[in-house]
């Protein structure tokens, strides 16, 4: 188990180094950083001074090593547009994005699994067919459209929910949370649904398909022959087997929820990392873009690792192969 985790951790570090190279390459190929910082009429001598102070005249390898060592300590340089350390900016924005992503994922998991199980167990009922139809809409409608439709309905027409922002937030240490105020919670509802709807439909369809598959399995028939209650068979035996692949997908989807929050954050003017990234792209703020790339990759890699470990907890068969390293 430990050996397996360590091996996976080493692989994860390899991935992060590769991403680091790409992030570093952005500085080299997306134009001259110096001309992004200085104004047009800065004399050449001053430009050289800036270049030297930033260490941009050192050999590429030295620069890369320095960048990487800094990045490993979460020092991503100074933003061109805000003139503040990128890590400070990220730390300010991250709670908003993570809270949104977690709420969206919880929404997607809870409703996705409930609807999926229902659609599988009562697949001939009208409600189950309705679930299937709704899931098609969720899969095919683009996120920004859903967001705008929700805003039109609940913010503009009905006026129940705020159309933008996080509402009031409470500061706990460096973390800011909107979960403790009424306006913060209300502000969270629509962005979470918008962001989570696609994942929800995905999970629902996956759970339904897996559940139908599992219900045909021999051990389910044998469980029935043993006289177990329908409840025990459906929720004890079938659901647990269904969840094995669902964990993987939901885990990986959590990464893309964070990555795709760019669109939702833009629609709802949510003060998170995604919105900051979009602004950074508009202003060619490379330190922010590179840091965002690294952060998202780090989150992805971490989730992958966690999913792998979760997998072995749920499925004992994997533990056996793990203890015998291949």
């Amino acid at each position: 188990m430990l050996a397996f985790t360590l091996r996976r951790a080493v692989q994860a570090i390899g991935v992060m180094i590769a991403v680091g190279i790409i992030a570093f390459a952005m500085f080299r190929f997306a134009g001259d950083p110096v001309s992004q910082i200085v104004s047009i009429d800065t004399p050449a001598a001053e430009r050289e001074a800036v270049r030297k102070s930033l260490g941009l005249d050192d050999p590429v390898l030295v620069q890369f090593a320095r960048y990487f060592i800094n990045a490993a300590q979460f020092k991503f340089g100074v933003s061109y547009q805000f003139r503040q350390p990128v890590s400070t900016l990220l730390a300010e924005r991250m709670p908003a994005t993570l809270e949104l992503a977690v709420c969206a994922t919880i929404f997607a998991m809870v409703f996705g699994i409930l609807m999926g199980v229902y659609a599988a167990l009562r697949r001939d009922t009208l409600l189950a067919k309705l679930c299937q139809a709704v899931s098609l809409i969720g899969i095919s409608l683009p996120t920004f459209l859903i967001g705008i439709l929700l805003i039109y309905l609940f913010a503009v027409t009905l006026g129940w929910l705020p159309s933008f922002g996080r509402g009031e937030v409470v500061r706990i240490g460096w973390w800011t949370t909107g979960l403790l105020t009424v306006s913060g919670l209300k502000a969270l509802i629509m962005p979470s649904i918008t962001l989570g709807l696609f994942q929800m439909t995905l999970i629902m369809r996956l759970v339904r398909a897996e559940m139908l598959e599992v219900l045909r399995a021999d051990y389910i028939r044998f469980a029935r022959a043993r006289g177990l209650t329908t409840r025990a068979i459906h929720f004890g035996h079938a659901l647990k087997n269904t969840l094995v692949p669902v964990i993987t997908v939901a885990g990986l989807q959590f990464g893309s929820v964070i990555a795709f929050s760019i669109i939702t954050e833009s629609v709802f003017q949510w003060p998170g990392m995604g919105l900051m990234f979009v602004q950074a792209v508009q202003n060619v703020d490379i330190p922010i873009m590179a840091a965002y790339l690294l952060m998202v990759s780090l989150i992805f890699v971490t989730i992958n690792l966690v999913v792998d470990i979760l997998y072995t907890i749920v499925d004992p068969r994997l533990r056996a192969t793990v203890s015998r390293p291949a």
Binding site: A217, F222, A225, G227, P316
Partner: peptide, 18 residues
Amino acid sequence: GKRIGMIFQDPLTSLNPL
């Protein structure tokens, strides 16, 4: 299960793996 016990053909798939 109580008054009638049943044994199926394939023992590899008759037991819940988890």
